[in-house]
Design a protein around this nucleic acid. Structure first.
Lengths: 165, 165
DNA sequence: CTAAAAATGTTACAATATAACATTATAGAC
DNA sequence: GTCTATAATGTTATATTGTAACATTTTTAG
């Protein structure tokens, strides 16, 4: 089977991946007339350090080493801003945050989350969305924001036999 | 449009609904040789008081009035048991718990959650599940437990114009 | 330059969840 | 029935996650 681009190749150029995410964020904020301040940019950078969701207090630990007086509101306010502008997603099942590779169109997230290594990929499959809307409509429900978090094994851990050793 | 059975009719016989849920739970525990103790049964009952997710500390508040020395572990342990046996689901986006109407076959939940009144319905639409598995397979991901929580408006609140007054 | 607004700093605390160990209740062996 | 191992619950303390409220600083707009 051919892998889609959902999961990053293990050896992908992450420096470039991260830089382009920050550039997109910068452009988006410019267009919207909102400010990607150094703090917000730094928090976004930290979230993009890996393709793995990061907890607010993990981010805080790093910030504390860099800024005097970083405290929970410091990071939660930055995250609120980034969430509002679709630059990060919150992973509800992990109380964690992950960078959004495509912040332009607002969307509830479809996430594949590896239970072994934490690697997380964001899908945006219209067929899933459509299946959900069909089913919700049948129930008379007006869909707002669908959230999909699928726990399982990423291609690398699956092939390594993780999860059933 | 005809409503499916996903959302309870406003006037449904909830006493019966709840009683049958408890009976199913009792039978299931009997078959599995595990004990639905008075405490566990009571917690399940509380979760079934409505078709709305309930927080652990809301349950605890009620328990405290009934048992001397009820504490967080009291309710979390009961909930762990109920979760393990599929008798309740955890709603990740609300840090809350809701009774499962069909505990026999294990399944990740598909939930429609009303942002206005909290009413929650559990779907189990094979087409949604299939769409997810197709997409995940394409990404080389081994699906474990899919979790779907869809925020929106239930039929009653939607018709009442809630959410856009 | 100055006033208003936005962002951040700071302190305190709320809400959710778990660890660790003591005690009580239950089931099964005998 | 009694004893013992196991399961369940009680109890205390604490960890983790997230917010409220107000002070200060920075930025923008006039």
């Amino acid at each position: 089977m051919t892998l889609s681009t959902a999961f990053m190749d293990t050896g992908h150029d992450h420096a470039n991946c991260m830089e382009s995410a920050l550039d997109r964020a910068s452009a988006l904020c410019g267009e919207r007339g909102v400010r990607l301040t150094p703090l917000r940019r730094r928090v976004l950078e930290l979230v993009w350090v890996g393709h793995k969701p990061l907890g607010a207090y993990e981010i805080l630990d790093t910030l504390k080493a860099e800024r005097r007086g970083a405290a929970p509101p410091t990071v939660y306010r930055a995250l609120d801003f980034l969430l509002q502008h679709g630059l990060v997603h919150r992973i509800e099942s992990l109380n964690s945050f992950v960078g959004c590779p495509d912040p332009l169109k607002p969307h509830g997230g479809q996430f594949l989350i590896c239970r072994s290594c934490g690697l997380t990929a964001e899908l945006n499959d219209h067929r899933i969305d459509q299946a959900i809307r069909n089913s919700a409509n049948q129930a008379g429900f007006a869909v707002g924001r669908p959230m999909i978090e699928i726990e399982g094994l990423c291609p690398y851990c699956r092939d390594a036999g993780e999860g059933s050793p």
